[in-house]
Design a protein around this nucleic acid. Structure first.
Lengths: 215, 215
DNA sequence: ATCCGATCTGACTGATCGTCAGATTTCTGC
DNA sequence: GCAGAAATCTGACGATCAGTCAGATCGGAT
């Protein structure tokens, strides 16, 4: 399904072509690490890769298509976050540990892919369906996992009327994504990430179980 | 202090100039409502305002400076969110009602200024200090208000070791901002905003008080 | 009606986008 | 190893937009 690498006009790329294409992707990624998204020019990426803009357009429709490619790889890697919601007890001390693991997973993942996620966030916020889909593929997995966890806890507790499980799960995931994406912002504030981690873990635990975490 | 409106080269703008300037700002804002930020061209804004690009540059350094102007107005309006954190009981039913009011305040504010906030988010995420400052001026007020509320609750409860108040407040504010900014995203999911509101309120309440909200 | 400062704009330079035809490199069969 | 074919690359081009500047136009004061 992933199939062959193709040029814009549909030809299957050979050995040399694939190498060039990959080099362009690498340079684009490096560029995104250092410059604001809107300042990334095809001409600069091409220059950095030691080739010409025309070559770039041979392999990518436009800059966004290229970023999308990088984002898709990221999304594939992101599926591991889903595992952090599954087969967990979610009650008692073990539950809190699971919450911490989920929080750490998010923080690390966002730190690793920060520049890409920034573009994905923006583009999907502005209505680009391709990027929206990437974002969803990462977050949906976690959200559904958490939804199931919450439903399970609610079924056992049967406290009567509860918050909708999927809304709570979606909210927690949005929170995790937001805080993870603003780690630098927190530090620029007088807030230490060392303190934010337990705050997040506590909220995740309370959101799922409705109880204060054990200490 | 707000002083007179000035042109880029320092002249004080007269009646006609101010009108033109305002028209440009209005058109820019309308443009941001409908097009992605990166697609907004000075030439289009000028055309929509029935003037020429050169005129635009008479009043604004660049597009971002103009957006910053709009963003500053928004930030001024945003100070009302701070009031929602002050002089609240934050315990019992009254506390939950206060949490609901805060949540609603955020949701409405973000809905009203969605396109501007989107740009502010992006620009500050990419390191533009001017926009970062605007973002902070809105969020800091709420965060400090919440921090005080949490410290107050913690002082009364004196349960020993607690989560750092400012970290918890910052996290809650980030959560509110994130969810408010993704209202459309939630709806595109199968999650109803009607369900998200209580989820948010519950998390805010629990984050502040450490207890499950009363029903 | 005339003048003067405030305001606007046509025209220009320079940068980038995105395309295409043709040059260059690599591969293939012999 | 070589001719021919296929793959790949690129110079050059037309189009668009940013940003600047000198000069045209406007509108109120006298």
């Amino acid at each position: 399904m992933t199939g062959q690498v193709r040029t814009v006009d549909g030809r299957v790329a050979g050995r040399r072509g694939q190498a060039t294409r990959q080099k362009l992707l690498d340079c684009l990624r490096e560029m995104l690490d250092t410059s604001p998204y809107r300042d990334v020019k095809v001409i600069d990426v091409a220059r950095m890769a030691g080739t010409s803009p025309a070559t770039f357009y041979q392999y990518f429709q436009d800059v966004e298509s290229a970023i999308l490619e990088i984002a898709n790889d990221m999304a594939k890697d992101g599926q591991r976050l889903k595992a952090l919601t599954e087969d967990q007890g979610w009650t008692g001390k073990g539950g809190y540990a699971a919450a911490e693991a989920l929080v750490d997973g998010f923080l690390e993942f966002w730190q690793e892919y920060e520049p890409i996620l920034r573009v994905v966030d923006l583009a999907s916020a502005e209505g680009d369906k391709r990027f929206y889909k990437v974002r969803q593929s990462i977050l949906t997995a976690v959200t559904t996992g958490l939804t199931e966890a919450i439903e399970e806890v609610q079924a056992k507790g049967k406290t009567g009327e509860e918050v909708a499980a999927n809304a709570m799960a979606g909210t927690l995931v949005a929170m995790l994504a937001a805080v993870s994406g603003h780690q630098k912002g927190f530090e620029t504030w007088k807030i230490k990430m060392k303190d934010v981690r337990p705050a997040l873990s506590t909220l995740v635990f309370m959101g799922i179980t409705g109880k204060k975490p054990p200490r």
